[in-house]
Write a protein that binds this DNA or RNA. Structure first.
Lengths: 242, 242
DNA sequence: CGTGAGATTGAGAATTCTCAAAGGTCGTGG
DNA sequence: CCACGACCTTTGAGAATTCTCAATCTCACG
């Protein structure tokens, strides 16, 4: 099966050049592709991984479960994200990776990744970069959680989705799909779904977004960015030699 | 100047073997060593880095400033931490790195790190791992911030310090130095220093810790771990092939 | 001993949570 | 093509945690 790694390449090329040879090397490391339904655990906390997963299509999340049934989502993964590249080095997972929508996932055995590190130093650096950007996203979220209000956090999340989805052409004209429940957004922001609901109403009432069903239209990007104090620097979408 | 990379090696060797050749390669990438006072910015947000810093001695922090003078500390760096290895790939910094105590810092030019990726794939993976562990620490903190109470968060931080400091021999017998103000701890937990103070009093009052000046003694490790729901898995201190 | 940074205390205020209960929406089976 | 059920969203009201803003206290150090 020929996996479509187009979205991944778009992301990598937003940050640096990727040669044809590197592109071929990437395509070659995929062992197989799987279709998985929503709410499937792709990688379980505490398990020891021997392969990593590349999200070809669909949304997933990194989540940590806490006693008492609560959970914290620490990052959302969009199509083209190498969702558990971290497990290549960690081996033992510190968190779950769970699909949020029906998804298509490419499986990459760790031996193949090891081979990349031995033969393609520049491609290695680009993959390394993508894990380091995950860390930058974590820092940005932590800052939002610790030092911003609930409504700012949610606004920030919407800004992030829009910018990240645009890279792979999944968002345009200030409009994008958002297949998340308010509960899932709450799990990401450290809020209850009740409070997410009230803040979402406020964002709508203030004329910042139109947000119905599972799609969002940003009505006033300037004001949303200003409310969220959103600065996309942390996404490292500058093209430069790495 | 001969830099003492002993603490760094202890950390790396807690996770996998490091050959004598790799050790020599690491020692060779250090361009120079600097002594810096407390509260010095080692790497500034938004600047474009051309070298990374290895903390030989002292404590530092990754911090993000938010309008209105607030800040969020996203990780504390201890002696032996490669504090801004992230900048090797990010180039443009998404956060500040600031010393919290007088420190000794080794400077590593990015060209040297590039050379490591070209000649030492296994060492590259170990350095990559250390950035991925930073991300795991971020996730753990985010979970604490989002889904645990203030006192649990602070207890969790103390557990983390003890385990991390033990790796390099800087903690033992449930005792360790803690050169942080309550304000700095608040910046890390997303709390005010006032609330940190009250929670610290409660931890002392409950007989969990002795915490005076800048040193902590954990009086009841079991109970502290249980309160904080602390599980050191996220620190990846298992020795296995990477 | 005076100074200044950091720790501690007090009291009222704000944000967010908890616990229900009610209202909508969408896919599926009859 | 409609009714049903499951899953979300929305609303209300009281409660809890944490914040804000001072003011005071302590202690290491010059």
């Amino acid at each position: 099966m020929r996996a479509d790694i187009g979205p991944l390449l778009l992301k990598l090329r937003a940050r640096d050049e990727v040669s044809a040879e590197e592109e071929a090397a990437l395509a070659a490391i995929i062992a197989r592709v799987e279709e998985v339904p929503a709410d499937t655990v792709l990688a379980a906390e505490n398990s020891v991984a021997t392969s990593s997963r590349l999200l070809l299509d669909g949304w997933s999340a990194r989540a940590k479960l806490v006693q008492s049934g609560r959970r914290q989502i620490t990052e959302f993964n969009l199509p083209g994200d190498f969702v558990d590249l971290h497990s290549f080095l960690l081996k033992r997972m510190d968190h779950d990776v769970v699909t949020l929508t029906p998804s298509r996932v490419a499986i990459v055995p760790h031996e193949q990744l090891t081979a990349i590190t031995e033969r393609h130093p520049h491609l290695t650096r680009l993959l390394w970069l993508s894990t380091v950007v995950d860390a930058a996203i974590h820092r940005e979220w932590m800052t939002a959680q610790g030092r911003m209000t609930a409504i700012q956090q949610i606004a920030h999340l919407l800004c992030e989705f829009y910018v990240r989805l645009k890279v792979t052409g999944l968002a345009a004209d200030h409009h994008f799909p958002l297949p998340l429940t308010q509960e899932e957004i709450g799990d990401a922001c450290g809020l209850t779904s009740v409070h997410v609901n009230r803040m979402a109403q406020q964002l709508r009432g203030d004329g910042l977004v139109e947000w119905r069903r599972s799609a969002v239209t940003i009505l006033d990007w300037e004001r949303l960015v200003s409310l969220a104090m959103f600065d996309p620097t942390y996404l490292s979408l500058e093209r430069r030699p790495r």
